[in-house]
Write a protein that binds this DNA or RNA. Structure first.
Ligand SMILES: [Mn+2]
Ligand SMILES: [Mn+2]
Ligand SMILES: [Zn+2]
Ligand SMILES: [Zn+2]
Lengths: 144, 144
DNA sequence: ATTAAATTTGTAATGATTACAAATATGAAA
DNA sequence: TTTCATATTTGTAATCATTACAAATTTAAT
């Protein structure tokens, strides 16, 4: 397991973020749960171990990590932000039935575009995602 | 102008939607304002002409039109849904500064994929967008 | 030990969206 | 035209994610 506390601590320090206990817990959670969790999911789980954990701290920390480029915000459901520890530009699949978000392994188009502008607009981020019914939900449908 | 009231009425009837006055107004607005407006923008403008217009009706109608495939919901800002009269799969540019959403003219990758699945997931929609600073905001920056 | 700054916490406020029920409009049957 | 069922609209209240804010706590330097 690469994602032990020491590595997490290093990761924060390298980005100039003071490695408080709450921040370590939150970042560790993201390393261990690659399902693009919500604030709610993160908080509900961590508050079991750390009963003093505040939801505001989860929000604050995720915003900080996002600003520092440690994590990425994914806004494709329209109802809540999902968080991704994987900061390399990659694409996603959102299941309309169960709400799960999967990484998909397609070579990101435009990723190696030499010009970082389009129609005069300066491109800073490239996002792509599919919507549909996920593998798991398809299987469940057939077993009904 | 193709987007007169008669055409709008036809459009609704063809989709099996009763063309009420409110629905006509809302759909006409979307035809006339191709900037991917919010519910707020639509309501604020229409209530001037139709003072009895309710915001709930705007929500209801947009949901109906979306379900019937007349319009598309765009969820890329994370804070509110934007609406698009253009239902053909196309890509967008979101300006981080002014919040405007532009259509961008790139040939949608994956669009002509023969297989409508990826990693076992059934693909129903393909979305792509860029984030950055729009042409207009770049110009304003230079004139400060 | 003192003290200032950073962090965390709890609560209140905000803002978009939805739920819901009353009011109104529509349209067919009598 | 009246009657009556149904669809639509409207206003208000509720919900839910997120943010604002200030008090409490922790941290680190003096
Ligand atoms: Mn991902
Ligand atoms: Mn568009
Ligand atoms: Zn699923
Ligand atoms: Zn702009």
């Amino acid at each position: 397991m690469i994602t032990n506390m020491k590595h997490i601590k290093n990761e924060l320090e390298q980005k100039g973020i003071k490695p408080t206990y709450q921040r370590l817990c939150i970042l560790e959670y993201l390393h261990a749960h690659l399902v693009h969790p919500t604030v709610e999911m993160i908080y509900d789980k961590l508050v079991e171990r750390v009963p003093t954990m505040s939801k505001t701290t989860v929000y604050n920390t995720l915003k900080l990590l996002s600003e520092k480029g440690v994590i990425n915000e994914i806004t494709i459901t329209g109802t809540e932000v999902r968080y991704d520890i994987n900061c390399q530009s990659h694409h996603h699949f959102l299941c309309k039935k169960c709400g799960k978000i999967y990484d998909v392994d397609v070579t990101c188009p435009f990723a190696n575009m030499d010009h970082k502008e389009i129609s005069g607009h300066e491109i800073q981020e490239i996002h792509g995602y599919f919507k549909g019914i996920c593998k798991e939900c398809l299987t469940n449908q057939n077993n009904e």
